Computed example of a mutant assay.
Amino acid sequence: MRLLRWITPIFLLGLALAACGPAKKSVYPPNISIQQLVVLPGGQWRLTVRIQNNSYGEMDFKSLDGQLQIANLVPIRLHSTFALDIPTLAGDVIQLDVLPTAAMTDALKVIAGKGSSGSLAYRVSGSTSAKPEEEDKPRNFDFNGNDWISPVPGIANTYR
């Protein structure tokens, strides 16, 4: 009887410890924003798009598919495929060339002469494909962000 009293708690403790494994790292959607916009000589825009990994593990980003809306104008498509490994709680950038609408180009011209006091609201939304560190397959993460761009003083055709 005494032996049974000791074996049962030890057995239960062993089961509890066996169920413990390494903790799974938390995965959260990334933040996407425009770090810089440069107006190229042909009228295209070169966007430096920042991808901020908000997860507690490395993420292997594969693609981005979404849209960019300047002010309340008609949005344009953002799309790119790439291979970008972003460490835990860090960010990195990709570059995208896009063709803006005439209304978007006019909106930038309006704030260009105002220097850093001029600003224009923008919105990015869509999804990005990424493979979290502890997973086998990539999955899609939705993003939706709002911010402002302003002309960079002393650097023509550049906005941040």
Score class of each variant (00 low, 15 high):
Arg2His: 15
Leu4Asp: 15
Trp6Phe: 14
Trp6Gln: 14
Ile7His: 11
Ile7Val: 11
Ile10Trp: 10
Ile10Asn: 11
Phe11Leu: 14
Gly14Arg: 01
Leu17Glu: 13
Leu17Ile: 11
Cys20Trp: 07
Ala23Cys: 13
Tyr28Pro: 03
Ile34Ser: 05
Val39Arg: 01
Pro41Gln: 04
Thr48Glu: 12
Thr48Cys: 04
Arg50Asn: 05
Asn54Leu: 01
Asp60Lys: 13
Phe61Arg: 05
Asp65Trp: 08
Gln67Asn: 11
Leu68Asp: 05
Ala71Met: 08
Pro75Asp: 03
Pro75Phe: 01
Pro75His: 02
Ile76Arg: 10
Arg77Asp: 10
His79Val: 07
Thr88Asp: 05
Thr88Leu: 00
Leu89Arg: 07
Asp92Cys: 08
Asp92Arg: 13
Leu96Tyr: 09
Leu96Trp: 09
Thr101Asn: 07
Ala103Arg: 03
Asp106Arg: 07
Leu108Arg: 01
Gly115Phe: 09
Gly115Met: 09
Ser117His: 08
Gly118Val: 12
Gly118Ala: 13
Tyr122Pro: 08
Ser125Tyr: 10
Ser125His: 10
Gly126Gln: 02
Glu133Phe: 10
Asp142Ala: 02
Asn144Asp: 03
Asn146Thr: 06
Ser150His: 06
Ser150Ala: 04
Gly154Gln: 08
Gly154Glu: 08
Ala156Glu: 15
Tyr159Cys: 10
